[in-house]
Write a protein that binds this DNA or RNA. Structure first.
Lengths: 291, 291
DNA sequence: CCATTTACCTGACCTTAGTCAGGTAAATGG
DNA sequence: CCATTTACCTGACTAAGGTCAGGTAAATGG
């Protein structure tokens, strides 16, 4: 590995560590230790079981226990035995705890806002940050079949439409092109697969079927920040597996040569070019794969 | 400010905080507290005066003093009164201290290497990290006149040549085009201005003069990671100021329309287009500015 | 020259973080 | 049913981080 690359990484770490230190300092101004604040935050994020908290925060049983007692004494949380296993305990924020949690959230938001406000071209900076976020959190990326009308799917589809419009220099309207297909991209006819990192949509692909052995792959998209990580292949694999499970034996798709990354992926994954099978104006490449 | 942007920033912070925490943990394996390790590191980086250390690490006098005594007791540093002000004290690493410092450096390097090794497309990730580093450390960017043959200048020039070759689709050879001009880009004829962040070159521009009132601006370059921050304008302003100080009254330059960001900057800064004044093959735009 | 300031040190003290050895109550598994 | 395991708690302890009130020696500024 190049020493110059290592230096660049270390410069990055140093620059960001300063920002992170500043955020943690701002947390201390609420008269509570960083440990307590972190536990409160984790509970607010939904880690309510004591065992989940322990795993998430990587804390010793004794230490966590004492931090919980402290928050309890402050009236911020309540802990009760879990109904189905009374050895385990579940914590819940009291109304006061919720307020306090929200204050910390607001502090984090303000901090983020202040840093971003210093920059004229926020989009450019955030695009770079997204690339780093996705790369560093690669292990947490989740691939799942979701409903075509779910919020995550909608986010993906809107981003897909925006990118298609930009790259093909046209106005791609999901309403016109998408809604009629809704039931065909849902079980049992078809499916819709999404890759995401938390609430952040990273990619999608739909399988549009009609109950027969032939189905169509549509809406294949990878977020710019998530490219070059091999997600496209994983997403397509997941879609092909889902199609097989729906007794589909042949998949086909149409695309445009402008979307060269996608076309090259399809080729690498064993798709072959076939004759035009529709008269849509925008696609100029048609492909097929037998499962 | 958009809530979505804030969320993206916060996701970024979280992802990176985990990496940074892991690095600090690896420091603890050497049987020394993080505080001591940080002080040793700072001394190794060149913060030798006790007051500099205090400012850099933001430590209380008492705490720093005790950490220094600890390192002294380990035989890693020596502290002596400063000759010109015997109240102040200067620390120096002993040979053993140097070795220990280098071990920490190696740990950081290994950590960086391990993280980067997990990524197929390291260049892409590092480019994004550079954008973040530069944006977050904007206040530390330094503009200075340097010798045209200095290391920093050479780094800039090589990057400049590489980018020119790429964007104009030719092989731009500094050796042929640069070396004959060396003395003309040095005082008293001309100058060479560099923008940098530590050892990281962010941009450059040369003023090539011959002692007369007319000089030429050449080698204007801004690192990709440093774009959209307004550095080009600051760099050009610095170059124009330096030219004035050298009694230059008119600057001119040639460039290529492919380098549209530069051309638009020159126009915004009051440069006007003039007739071709040389017969070089690559430039197609010629400009002038009276100081 | 001497009061004041500056730079650093020392000792006393406190909080936080973290570890570990028990202990209790509930669940589990023959 | 009972030994064992699991989930959590408590108390004792240590190390590290951090604050503060003096104290000393050197420099400074009328």
């Amino acid at each position: 590995m190049d020493q110059d690359q290592i230096t660049r990484f270390r410069n990055f770490s140093r620059a960001v560590a300063i920002e992170i230190g500043a955020l943690e300092d701002s947390f201390l101004n609420r008269g509570r230790s960083l440990g307590s604040a972190r536990v409160l935050n984790a509970i607010g994020l939904g880690y309510e079981d004591v065992s989940d908290l322990r795993a998430f925060l990587d804390l010793d049983t004794g230490l966590l226990s004492r931090l919980l007692r402290g928050l309890e004494a402050e009236g911020l949380i309540e802990t009760n035995p879990k109904p189905d296993d009374r050895r385990s305990r579940v914590t819940t924020l009291t109304p006061m705890g919720v307020r306090e949690f929200e204050i910390y959230e607001a502090l984090s938001d303000q901090r983020a806002e202040r840093v971003l406000a210093r920059h004229a071209d926020v989009r450019h900076l955030l695009d770079a940050m997204d690339v780093v976020t996705v790369a560093l959190s690669r292990e947490d990326i989740v691939f799942e079949e979701v409903d075509y009308s779910s919020e995550l799917a909608t986010k993906c589809l809107n981003a897909f439409a925006a990118e298609l419009s930009r790259r093909l220099n046209l106005i791609f309207d999901l309403k016109k092109s998408g809604d009629p297909e809704l039931s065909q991209m849902q079980h049992p006819h078809g499916t819709f697969v999404v890759a995401s990192l938390g609430a952040m949509p990273l990619g999608c692909v739909g399988v549009k079927g009609n109950g027969g052995p032939l189905a169509e792959v549509k809406r294949m998209w990878i977020a710019p920040a998530a490219r070059r990580l091999g997600l496209g292949r994983r997403l397509m694999t997941k879609a092909e597996d889902a199609a097989r499970a729906l007794s589909i034996t042949t998949l086909r798709l149409d695309t445009n040569s402008t979307l060269f990354e996608a076309v090259s992926l399809y080729k690498r994954m064993g798709w072959t070019e076939i004759e035009r099978f529709n008269d849509d104006p925008y696609p100029d490449i048609f492909m097929e794969k037998h499962l």
